[in-house]
């Protein structure tokens, strides 16, 4: 019952590959780098992105993905570099209430909690399937 849709399927897999943030994570880990994966784990009020949004930060402060941009993101980036250095995860509370007068696009009036998690190759291998 093989359908003639095989080529469509390959194209879709290719598309998903480029979408996957974990592909990029793996590439960096393979080079021996430690990364920080920052994820919005809870929000209150109006926030630029939803729970589950992710951003990957490298030791040099490069960023892949976004958790909404603006000052909040800059704070998270700073904390992420610390997380990479110590290899200890932490939760960062990003308050978008306090700088209502700024021109930043991140002024939404909400609060979000961001979990910053260090990933490195050996740790990644520890979580392997059984």
């Amino acid at each position: 019952m093989a359908g003639p849709g095989a080529c469509h399927e390959d194209a879709e897999i290719e598309r998903r590959k480029t979408d996957s943030i974990y592909h990029q994570v793996k590439e960096f880990l393979d080079k021996g780098e430690t990364l920080a994966v920052a994820t919005i784990v809870s929000t209150r009020g109006s926030t630029p992105r939803e729970v589950g949004a992710k951003m990957v930060v490298t030791a040099w402060g490069e960023i892949l993905g976004t958790i909404g941009g603006g000052c909040g993101e800059a704070d998270v980036k700073r904390e992420a570099i610390e997380v990479i250095r110590t290899r200890k995860p932490r939760v960062v509370r990003v308050d978008l209430l306090d700088d209502i007068s700024s021109d930043s696009p991140a002024v939404c009036g909400g609060i979000m909690n961001v979990f910053i998690d260090p990933w490195w190759k050996e740790r990644d291998a520890e979580g392997a399937g059984k």
Partner: peptide, 26 residues
């Protein structure tokens, strides 16, 4: 399968459903 990142990539490629649970406070 040897690494968690590889499993996550495979899940996406296969179009499978999954949940990754991470402890954020203990």
């Amino acid at each position: 399968m040897s690494r968690l990142s590889e499993e996550l990539i495979q899940i996406q490629e296969q179009g499978a459903a999954a949940v990754l649970a991470t402890v954020i406070n203990a």
